[in-house]
């Protein structure tokens, strides 16, 4: 099997999405912060959709406890997630301009590291880190679009997961209630529903459809 050319893959995407939307997707750039259950799924959706430029950021390594819901393979255990997902994304979308940072995001480095893309997806797992990233982006990078995830743990109905437009550039996906700290597990399908909400909102922003 020979690899399809850049033109062949682009044409296939155009046929699915239409010329205008694919032009916008190819010109778009998204950074995914945290590539666990939310972020690995978000990045894969965006790569498949033909987003032109993707950045993935995570400092963690693939652990066996991740395999129930995160887009890694058993043979990738121990690898940095940024390297493992980079490999997978490169196979899905060989002509996507993908970059990766194996680094912990902080209030100090966020203004520099998250300044290069149009849309920022917050896909951390810990509440204090979500709070830090969202507040820092809203304070320091107010012109960026920000899509955050909060509340996707447990077995409650997937119908409770929604996309809420908070302000002009800021969206939150999830039920904003179900906390992994309450002893709820993380079920792959429900986490993926939230990730799909986030990826789809990013695609809608790229399509200049800003409402929810």
């Amino acid at each position: 099997m020979t690899m399809p050319t850049r033109e062949e893959m682009y044409r296939a995407l155009e046929e699915r999405h239409g010329k205008e939307l694919q032009r916008r997707l190819s010109a778009a750039s998204v950074v995914v912060c945290g590539i666990g259950g939310l972020g690995s799924n978000i990045a894969i959706h965006l790569a498949r959709a033909g987003v032109g430029r993707l950045r993935i950021i995570d400092f963690d390594r693939v652990d066996i406890s991740n395999l129930n819901r995160q887009q890694y393979f058993p043979e990738q255990l121990g690898m940095y997630k940024s390297d493992a997902l980079y490999d997978t994304l490169s196979r899905i979308a060989p002509y996507c301009d993908i970059s990766r940072n194996c680094v912990k995001l902080t209030e100090e480095n966020i203004p520099e590291l998250l300044n290069g893309e149009d849309i920022i997806c917050e896909a951390f797992d810990k509440a204090d880190q979500k709070e830090m990233l969202v507040n820092t982006v809203l304070e320091k990078l107010p012109d960026k679009f920000l899509v955050s995830g909060s509340g996707m743990a447990g077995l409650s109905s997937a119908n409770n997961i929604v996309t809420r437009k908070v302000t002009r550039h800021f969206y939150v996906c999830g039920d904003e209630v179900s906390d992994v700290a309450d002893g709820l597990g993380l079920i792959s399908a429900r986490v993926a529903v939230c990730a799909a909400h986030m990826a789809h909102m990013a695609i809608r922003i790229i399509a200049q459809e800003y409402d929810v």
């Binding site: 979500k130 507040n135 743990a153 908070v166 986490v191």
Partner: peptide, 29 residues
Amino acid sequence: ESIVPRDQYDSTVLYEGDHLEVVRFVGGG
């Protein structure tokens, strides 16, 4: 429509007609 910096929660006073949006972050991702 503007972020309230975290160090200004104690000093920012609310007035008639204000619109506040609060997002709560819970763990899991």
